[in-house]
Design a binder for these strands. Structure first.
Lengths: 229, 229
DNA sequence: CGACCATTTGATATGGATCAAGCGATGTGG
DNA sequence: CCACATCGCTTGATCCATATCAAATGGTCG
């Protein structure tokens, strides 16, 4: 059982914040048009950013690196809800308390923003409020796509994941995955073995190429899209 | 392929709306505190309310009956995203166009509200904006729970569904399901046969009772919660 | 080089899908 | 009022995709 009362590392580690003072800094919070107060923080690989059940006093924007949010079921199964890449905002999937835990997938820099400041601003400024709503609606849409992934076959899930990642990192043909096979498996509701087998099978049929386990070349996007159901 | 240009029945059938005039009526849109403009409409069993890809110009509040929203994959599989019961608001899971289709599960009365009116109101009134945000966040939370359901075993999914429905209809021990086994199956990512078998098995172990196929008595909630993982 | 960890590969087991038949309620026409 | 069609649901038999268990491989760091 996860503790309901621990303080999130994002607060623990940040001098000044727990004392009620936020380091002032201008930065673009919401897709680059609203000036906002935030503090940059660093997390190393696998470090916890916040835990399920903790008060959700902050919003987070990924500067560099990758973040995973997840839940662990009673029997130990872990479901990854989302991966957040540079530019993505997370932590608004919530009411008063976090309903998921968040960890750094790789060494990560994150902008931490006091939620109450944003909410207060939104109360006065309709545009900010609209932005917050849009962000949440976008997140909702993403989770709905995730639901669709989870009813598909293993091959369709893996292909869907690759296409999603390719689009989000907007790389060319080759993508660098920041997460492990176990992370991918827990995101797709599969086992690590099935993910691995599916990737090698895709490589065998020349749809992809695997220069290394974390690098994947999309060799035939048309074929992949066809396999995406 | 679903048409991208058809007009939603909610608009087609409503005299006055397509002509730009909304019947004026006071009603409580957002959990009962904001006066809003809306028009009541009726849909009979299995009638379409709106279709995927249509412009999302309205929000909907269920007065009586039940609504399902769903997507159909290319190969014909149908995934039900949500069931909406009396009091629930749907149609805000979207940007400009509906990303899902909506149908009446049973004969249903729905309040139809012009989206632009709500958005305009939210722009001026921070409380309304906050309400919209909350509603979307709540929907997000619901979908995240749905994701968790989909990685569980068949028995856990069915039990989870029963407990969810019991809570939402806040009935006593006996719940009346408005939807068919096929609807339940498409919500849970299972087949109709597996849903049926799981229910009879739960009945055999005395966790539930099945007076008729649509009526289910939760005989042992503690046992059910234990089976919920 | 050797330990460690992530990943791949192989062999087998199993939960749920699929295919197929039976059953019970509801409705319709004779 | 009954014979019969229809539809939703249940039950049975078999199959298959993915999980599970187990071992081999490979890459990284001391």
């Amino acid at each position: 059982m996860l503790s309901q009362t621990t303080i999130s590392p994002a607060v623990r580690h940040m001098p000044g914040i727990s004392a009620g003072r936020l380091p002032l800094r201008d930065c673009h919070l919401l897709s680059g048009s609203i000036e906002m107060i935030g503090a940059p923080m660093s997390f190393c690989r696998n470090e916890e950013i916040f835990g399920e059940g903790e008060p959700a006093d902050y919003l987070y924007k990924v500067i560099s690196g990758t973040v995973r949010t997840y839940k662990v079921l009673a029997d130990g199964r872990r479901q990854i809800q989302a991966f957040y890449l540079p530019g993505d905002i997370f932590g608004l999937d919530t009411g008063d308390d976090h309903t998921v835990s968040a960890e750094a997938v790789s060494d990560t820099k994150i902008l931490v923003i006091k939620r109450s400041a944003v909410v207060a601003l939104a109360q006065r400024d309709g545009d900010v409020a609209r932005r917050l709503w849009d962000l949440t609606a976008r997140e909702l849409h993403r989770v709905q796509e995730h639901v669709l992934l989870l009813i598909k076959t293993a091959q369709e899930r893996v292909v869907g994941f690759l296409l999603e990642m390719a689009e989000r990192v907007h790389a060319g043909r080759e993508i660098e995955l920041p997460m492990s096979r176990q992370d991918i498996a827990d995101y797709l509701g599969l086992t690590i073995e099935t993910v691995s087998r599916t990737l090698t099978q895709l490589a065998t049929t020349a749809a992809i190429e695997l220069p290394s386990s974390r690098r994947i070349v999309l060799r035939n996007r048309a074929a992949l899209s066809r396999l995406n159901a």
